[in-house]
């Protein structure tokens, strides 16, 4: 947390409209770089879910992301010109915003390519979920990352601005995930999916973590530890039931594998600003060059949250 506070000096407010947020508003926090093409659908998607205000850190975009975001009344924008890696992959900046603006709110922290899905999200807005979590006395809600991919080479169908990315990347792995418990922070560590299958088949331990706890009723003393994978105090990581029952949970549909990934992978592998020196991006770059199709005959085509529930990837818990 102190790191976050020190890094707040690196943030410059471009458009601070947080004064307009209501006490009940669900706030969305994001840190991004060069995501202009994704932003219209992103804002639209989360507005429809019922997000009250967007608080965004722009890490030196040169594609007009900042200008686009600054033009929306429900977006507050900060600029951070420092190193993404040195700021713990943006989490220090987002942490500073959470500290300053998140206290007492339900806060959803996501990347520009992550789309939150929760039980009944097609009929009940986000505040219905957070009211229910409040009633249950819950402070955090888990949503595992589900990597979505197209059928055929990832750059076969280009993504167009404003389009639902899951019209293209509509497939996912139904039951190809492994879970271990991290005894230190008590969180679950989930790996697997197409990335483990296609890029890390020879070194599974290096496959990216898919566990995420993006929705938290924020207090000033809370802090994300590593991306949104886990939190402190560690009681916030106990989003799962250990006696056989199912707690409620959601999913983050991950629209990473679109045609944009080739440029991104090349850029990020060179910048080395991502986790582990961009090694993950280097692996995609290598993987995407010789075997660009993640689709298999056992891939599931995404329909809705109920399908994810039936497949056992998320759960309604006792929300009815």
């Amino acid at each position: 947390m102190w790191r976050s506070l020190r890094r707040r000096g690196q943030l410059t407010a471009v458009a601070d409209r947080t004064g307009a947020t209501g006490a009940r508003d669900v706030l969305l926090f994001a840190c991004l770089r060069n995501e202009r093409i994704r932003l219209p659908y992103f804002l639209d998607y989360y507005r429809r879910l019922g997000v009250g205000h967007f608080l965004v850190v722009d890490n030196g975009s040169i594609d007009g992301s900042a200008e686009f975001l600054a033009g929306h009344d429900d977006v507050s924008l900060w600029r951070a010109d420092g190193s993404y890696a040195a700021a713990r992959f943006g989490m220090d900046w987002v942490g500073a915003l959470l500290f300053r603006h998140g206290h007492g709110h339900w806060c959803l922290t996501v990347d520009a390519d992550e789309f939150f899905v929760y039980p009944f999200c097609d009929t009940r807005p986000l505040p219905a979920l957070t009211d229910w979590l409040d009633d249950c006395g819950l402070r955090s809600f888990s949503a595992m990352l589900i990597d979505m991919y197209p059928k055929g080479p990832v750059d076969e169908t280009p993504y167009a601005e404003g389009q639902d990315p899951f019209e293209i990347a509509q497939w996912f792995d139904g039951s190809n995930y492994t879970i271990q418990r991290n005894p230190d922070l008590r969180n679950l560590w989930i790996q697997g999916g197409p990335r483990a299958r296609a890029f890390f088949a020879d070194r599974p331990a290096a496959a990216p973590a898919l566990n995420k706890i993006p929705l938290v009723k924020w207090r000033r003393r809370y802090a994300y530890v590593h991306s949104t994978h886990m939190l402190l105090p560690r009681g916030l990581n106990l989003t799962y039931d250990q006696s056989g029952g199912e707690a409620a949970s959601g999913a983050l549909l991950h629209a990473k594998f679109l045609h944009t990934i080739r440029d991104k992978a090349a850029e990020e592998a060179e910048r080395g600003e991502h986790y582990d020196g961009g090694r993950e991006y280097a692996a995609y770059r290598a993987g995407l060059e010789h075997s660009p199709d993640l689709w298999t005959e056992w891939s599931e085509r995404y329909i809705n949250w109920r399908q994810l529930e039936i497949l056992g990837l998320m759960s309604k818990g006792n929300w009815a």
């Binding site: 595992m144 799962y240 039931d241 250990q242 199912e246 707690a247 949970s249 998320m314 759960s315």
Partner: peptide
Amino acid sequence: LFSRATDRRVQGRPGLIMQSRFPARRLDA
């Protein structure tokens, strides 16, 4: 509807290991 919701929360689906159901081994029949 509501008794099924309670069952889901208390019993869960046997044999399912997922992000919000991770039974301690001795507790999962």
